[in-house]
């Protein structure tokens, strides 16, 4: 029986799964709209628009919830990036993922109560939660109220640039989602990290 650490408080698990459902809905409806095709509709366009808009609004509320709890509580410390030596730590973790893991080496930054994320995780989570999500929410709201967008930006349509930016961030966030889900299988067992996000207890490697 391995060591269990209570890493994921109730608020965080609720937020995480609400966030997960909304992000998945947004990606599927977003793809359906972006590549809409009269012959092969993934989701009927007007339904996709409605679901996308509603999910976007709910995601904004969910993000506010995350910000309040994350910045106002102890979870904040896990998102603090130490720039000094970051490159080395990232390389170390990267090397582990591309070779060490196959040789049965110990993880260079094992999860503990003091360190919930390894350096690569921390960097991607900070980029996602503090840059990616705010940008996609801002551009999404702008597209919901397109009259607020400047008409012309350096000779190009402001609306088009906003939409293009929104779609590009959405693309990178969906790439993040795929990698995130895959890396979640690198736990004590393939399912243990998923279980941890349900009961709150992280199962450490032996």
């Amino acid at each position: 029986m391995g060591v269990k650490i209570y890493l994921y408080p109730f608020w965080l698990r609720i937020w995480h799964w609400v966030n997960a459902i909304l992000i998945i809905l947004l990606i599927i409806t977003g793809i359906s709209m972006q590549y809409s095709n009269p012959e092969y509709p993934l989701i009927r366009f007007d339904i996709a628009v409605t679901i996308h808009n509603l999910s976007g609004i709910l995601l904004t509320a969910s993000y506010m919830f995350f910000l309040i709890f994350n910045l106002g509580g102890p979870n904040r410390k896990y998102y603090r990036l130490q720039i000094k030596g970051l490159g080395n730590r990232l390389m170390k973790q990267f090397r582990y993922y591309i070779s060490g893991i196959f040789k049965g080496e110990k993880a260079p930054f094992p999860i503990s109560e003091k360190r919930k994320f390894n350096p690569l995780q921390k960097l991607t989570y900070v980029l996602t939660m503090y840059i990616g999500i705010p940008l996609i929410l801002i551009t999404g709201w702008a597209l919901l109220f397109p009259e607020v967008i400047i008409h012309n930006f350096l000779g190009a349509s402001g609306l088009y640039l906003t939409a293009l930016f929104h779609v590009m961030i959405g693309f990178f966030l969906s790439i993040f989602l795929f990698i995130h889900i895959y890396f979640a299988t690198i736990g004590k067992t393939a399912a243990s990290n998923f279980r941890a996000m349900i009961n709150g207890w992280h199962e450490a490697h032996d």
Partner: peptide, 11 residues
């Protein structure tokens, strides 16, 4: 694209 953004049409 010069005038508007039509979701699904501008790719």
């Amino acid at each position: 694209m010069n005038e508007a953004y039509v979701i699904g049409a501008n790719r």
